[in-house]
C-alpha cells in the first residue's frame, strides 16, 4: 500500500514496528501500547466530562479531541479490563498526536491492516479499531467545520 507515505510520521513508525513483529509478538507489542495509554488529564477525569461515546459492543469507549499548537490531541477513557481496545486507542493517541485535522480526516480507513493484527485477532476484535478510527475522523471533521 502506498498510502502509508501520507500517514503522520509517528503513526507510520508504529505501523512499521507492528509489521516487524511476528505472530504473538504483535500481541505483546499491543499489550505494551495498552499499558502506555496516557491517563486522562484531571479536567476530563470525571464521569461527566464532555467526552463522546464510541458505540461499541461490550467495551465502553469515550473519546474527545482538542487542538494544541495546530495539531490534534486525543484523550480516551477505556476500562482497564479491555487491554486490546486500550492498545488500539494508545496507537491512535500516540500516532496521531500533533497531526493536523486534515491529515486525520484523510487517513485511509484500513491503514492498520498493514500492521498484520488480523493474523492474531478476529475481525470481530479488530472492528474496535475501525470504530475508533471512524470516530476520530469525525472529530477531526467537526474541528474543521467549526474553523470554517
Amino acid at each position: 500500500m502506498s498510502a502509508s507515505k501520507e500517514l503522520p510520521e509517528r503513526l507510520a513508525e508504529i505501523i512499521a514496528d507492528f509489521k516487524l513483529a511476528e505472530g504473538r509478538e504483535k500481541l505483546e507489542l499491543l499489550l505494551e501500547y495498552s499499558q502506555n495509554l496516557a491517563p486522562l488529564p484531571e479536567a476530563l477525569n470525571h464521569p461527566h466530562a464532555p467526552m463522546e461515546p464510541v458505540p461499541e459492543c461490550m467495551t465502553p469507549v469515550s473519546v474527545t479531541a482538542e487542538i494544541q499548537n495546530g495539531g490534534m490531541v486525543f484523550y480516551f477513557r477505556i476500562p482497564e479490563e479491555s487491554p486490546t481496545v486500550r492498545g488500539y486507542a494508545a496507537i491512535i493517541a500516540d500516532g496521531l498526536k500533533g497531526a493536523s485535522p486534515e491529515q486525520v480526516m484523510n487517513l485511509p480507513a484500513d491503514f492498520f491492516l498493514e500492521m498484520g493484527l488480523q493474523q492474531v485477532l478476529t475481525p470481530q476484535r479488530l472492528n474496535g479499531m475501525s470504530a475508533i478510527i471512524a470516530h476520530v475522523k469525525r472529530l477531526a471533521m467537526g474541528i474543521l467545520q467549526t474553523k470554517n
Partner: peptide, 22 residues
Amino acid sequence: DEDALLYATGHIPGAAQVDWFT
C-alpha cells in the same frame, strides 16, 4: 476471554489460557 490481551495483564494463579480464535 473476549479480550485477547486480558490474560497477560493478570490471571488467577495457575490458570491456563485458551483463545477462541487462535
